[in-house]
Each structure stands twice: as structure tokens, then as C-alpha cells.
Design a protein around this nucleic acid. Structure first.
Length: 412
RNA sequence: GGCGGUUUGCCCGAGUGGCCAAAGGGAGCAGACUGUAAAUCUGCCGGCUAUGCCUACGUUGGUUCGAACCCAACAGCCGCCA
């Protein structure tokens, strides 16, 4: 199948298949690409989204980047907002019943969420639909008709359900409906392909069944893997503090990306950047070479990713700032200002805590004693907690290499 | 419903009446080295303008000059029985 693709589709296939955790059925993607080519129409590529209030991270962005690639090859992104399913709560990967969101909450979250999503997608070839529009008005008879296509045994095969079943923790009937509802979406939007994380595999495959029953060509399913966090071990997530948010300043992103372990550079290049699979291979080889070559490769990766969200110019500036601060050991001259009463004697631990450079004044003392606190780059001696305020005005105070503030006189 | 066990800091886990802000490990943070990578070494890892004070060992109450440690009740978790 893949071999039989015309040359013009080969490259598209290579790019679109790159980084996928799974493509089901195996030749489904190639088959759909061929069909679109034959019929001279764009593919309808579905992605279900559950707007949450949070900032998008590079982890969330993986599947969106994949969708963007489809757009770049002329296909149509179909975003299905879970206005209805959000009220049910996705049981995927959960070990307990998930708290459902009200329709109002979903709507409130949707706008800010979509704004972020559209930084990655091309809004001109994206359709945003809300599944409340068809699920909300569906008759019970119609619904029951769909339920005939799924058996309980099938549902129980999913490991999140089976684990809960075995351990006798409750599974509400509404949760059983979730995969079905999501599958009905595929019928409604006539999806050619559905994207999702690996945890969505079951739901997405169910879409095929329902489509077939309604006389549609079953969608191909393409799942993407989870992105590992900047620590290189755990999955990227807010609670672990190992994430890079797409809305973060360029310099922050650059720095965080430079700190990822070598072992995950290839993964990031594949999943978080917009590089051709060929370029990813080159990058991986450079990292494996070690030394300065590896460093250059990682820089390139960081530049590529930062450029996606802030543009090439900002990425170059971020790298320059990185060089200044971490390579030449200069202080970040663009440090935020912090106003504090500098008349008379100043208690440094209290100042550091108030400026957010330390979590508490006790922690600030520890930093001072450890030699991590510098004033204009000069390490503060241990146990020296009280300083003359007049000598601090306009100075740069730093804790470690990342936390810096410029002091100004003010405050109460 | 009955009996037994268990509950310690971000996580794991020692401690069973004063020497306990609580061993050890992991994670994390800082310093040295470096490619803000890895590996390695060192220090820190409850709060407080601080040679002391305060809060903390599931919750509440009690015994005691003194409780993470003993007692009681309650709650959570685990096991056995019904």
C-alpha cells in the first residue's frame, strides 16, 4: 500500500506518519491519502478537544502539531469541542470517576483555549464544531440504536475500565457512554482520520465501527505518544513542573529546552518541532556525537521550537541572552525591577522572599549561606543578612543563575 | 458486623517517653566541573529580622515535669473472618 503511493504523496506520507505512536489500520493513512488524491478533495481530520482552563504545554501541542501538518498538506482540521461530552467526563486513563464539567464551564474555557490552539493551527483551514449541537438533540431511540453496536465485554476490555472493574471501584454508566459519544462524533463530522493521544485509541477505533454501520468509509486512526517532560523522565505536566508552556517568554522556553537530557532530544525534535523526518534524523545523529556537536544540535532544536511560538527573531534573541547569561556568566540586564524601601538598613532575607527570589526568608538565608546570592555578580558572604540600603539601589540581585531582579528604592 | 495490623516531612522509610525539626534513601534546590546534557564531588532541603521562639509525626482528648513514641475515642488504609 505504502509502496504503491504515487511519488507526489510519498513525502506527505513520510511527514504525517513520522512520530505517530500507532496508525490503525496500518495502511489506513496511506489509503486515506490516496482516496483524497483520487477524489481531489481535502481529508477531514478530526480531533476531539476538551477545553480546560490551563495553558497549553508542548505536550498538548504534539497532537496539534500533527494536525497542523495535515493542514499544511492541504487537509481540513475538524476540531470537535466536547460541549456535550465534557459534561460526562472522559474516563480515559482515570482510576476513578472524573468530575464532569458543566456546559457553562466548557463554554467559558473554550475561547481562551481555542486562541492558544490557533497559534498552532491554521484557522483558515479549520472547522470548529461543538458536539452538543448533535448529541444534545439526539433522540433516545437514535441513541439506543448506536448502543447495539457495542458490547459490554468490549468496553470492559479497556484497561482503565477493567482495572476499576477488577478492583471493584465504581464505573458509572455515563462513563460507559463516553467512548460511544465520541465515536458518534466521527459519524457526524464524517471524519476521514481521527487524531488523538494513545489513551484515545479505543474511543477512536469505536468511531470506525459506527461509521461502517452508517455506510461511511471508516476513519483511519493516528495516535501520538506522550511527550516526556524537561526532566526527561516523567510525562510533561503542570503538576510536575517539567513543562514548557507555549505562551511562555522566548528566553524561558529556550533555557528550558537547553536543559533537556540528550536522550530526549530526538523525541522533542520529532514531536515538538516542525522538522522534516530527515532533519530529525540528522539532529539525532549530531546529539549522539556528543560534545560541541551535541550542543549545537540542541541549540538548533531550541531555536526551531521557540521560533514556532515567537518567531525567528525572538528565538535568536533568546539564544543570545542565553549565551550572555549562561555562557559568559553575565547578569540578565533585562531583569524585572523590584521596588523596596532602601532607606537605612535592609534585611536581605526578607527582601529576597518578597521579591520572589526565594520561597521564604528561611530559604533566602540558606541561599545566602550557600553562596548562591550575588549582588552585581559578587557573591554575598555567608551570614551577612543586614546591608546598607543606599548601596543597593540600582543593583542586580541574583539567586542562582535564573532568578534576578534589579532593585529600586520605593515601597513602603 | 467481628478480630488483627497500619497511618511519620514532596515520596519511600527508621524512630516506641527527654539526647527529635525527627536516621537513611529518592526527588528537588544551590555550589564546583561541564555542553544550563550526562556522570562526579560538596552543601541545603518546616516557619520566623533567628545562638532563641513557633508550628509539625492521621484527628480529638487524656496520662506525664516532659509525648511522634503510653492510653481512649474517631477517621483512613491493609489483611483475616462473617
Amino acid at each position: 500500500m505504502i509502496e504503491s503511493l504515487p511519488a507526489s504523496l510519498r513525502d506527505a506520507y513520510e511527514v504525517l506518519a513520522a512520530g505517530a505512536a500507532d496508525i490503525l489500520p496500518r495502511d489506513g493513512l496511506a489509503e486515506r491519502l490516496l482516496a483524497a488524491h483520487r477524489e481531489d478533495r481535502p481529508l477531514r481530520v478530526k480531533l476531539g478537544i476538551d477545553p480546560s482552563g490551563t495553558d497549553l504545554t508542548l505536550g498538548h501541542a504534539v497532537v496539534l502539531r500533527k494536525l497542523r501538518q495535515f493542514q499544511d498538506f492541504g487537509h481540513l482540521a475538524i476540531l470537535v469541542v466536547g460541549g456535550f461530552t465534557g459534561q460526562v467526563g472522559d474516563p480515559s486513563g482515570k482510576t476513578a470517576t472524573r468530575s464532569a464539567q458543566s456546559a457553562e464551564q466548557v463554554a467559558a474555557n473554550a475561547q481562551g483555549y481555542l486562541d492558544q490552539v490557533m497559534q498552532i493551527l491554521d484557522p483558515d483551514s479549520a472547522e470548529v464544531l461543538n458536539n452538543a449541537d448533535w448529541l444534545g438533540s439526539m433522540s433516545l431511540a437514535e441513541m439506543l440504536d448506536y448502543t447495539r453496536l457495542v458490547t459490554v465485554a468490549q468496553l470492559l476490555e479497556r484497561d482503565d475500565f477493567s482495572r476499576r472493574f477488577v478492583s471493584k471501584s465504581p464505573i458509572s454508566l455515563s462513563e460507559f457512554f463516553y467512548p460511544l459519544l465520541q465515536a458518534i462524533d466521527s459519524v457526524e463530522v464524517r471524519a476521514d482520520i481521527e487524531l488523538g493521544g494513545t489513551d484515545q485509541t479505543f474511543n477512536n477505533l469505536l468511531g470506525r465501527e459506527l461509521q461502517r454501520s452508517r455506510g461511511q468509509a471508516p476513519q483511519a486512526v493516528l495516535t501520538v505518544p506522550l511527550l516526556v517532560g524537561t526532566d526527561g523522565v516523567e510525562k510533561m505536566g503542570k503538576s510536575l513542573g517539567n513543562y514548557v508552556a507555549i505562551s511562555e517568554p522566548a528566553a524561558e522556553q529556550f533555557g528550558k529546552l537547553m536543559s533537556i537530557p540528550d536522550t530526549v532530544v530526538e523525541q522533542y525534535a520529532l514531536l515538538a518541532a516542525a522538522l522534516h523526518p530527515q532533519q530529525v534524523k540528522e539532529l539525532a545523529a549530531e546529539v549522539a556525537a556528543g560534545g560541541p556537536t551535541a550542543n549545537r544540535a540542541k541549540r538548533r532544536l531550541a531555536r526551531e521550537i521557540v521560533s514556532l511560538y515567537h518567531g525567528a527573531k525572538a528565538a535568536a534573541e533568546a539564544e543570545e541572552q542565553f549565551n550572555a547569561v549562561f555562557q559568559r556568566g553575565e547578569l540578565d540586564v533585562q531583569a524585572a525591577e523590584f521596588a523596596w524601601d532602601l532607606s537605612g538598613s535592609v534585611h536581605l532575607p526578607a527582601l529576597l522572599a518578597a521579591a520572589g527570589l526565594a520561597e521564604s526568608s528561611s530559604a533566602a538565608r540558606r541561599f545566602i549561606d550557600a553562596g548562591a546570592v550575588r549582588i552585581d555578580g559578587v557573591a554575598q558572604p555567608a551570614k551577612s543578612y543586614d546591608l546598607d540600603g543606599a548601596a543597593l539601589e540600582g543593583r542586580l540581585v541574583s539567586v542562582g543563575k535564573r532568578k534576578v531582579a534589579r532593585l529600586t528604592n520605593g515601597g513602603s
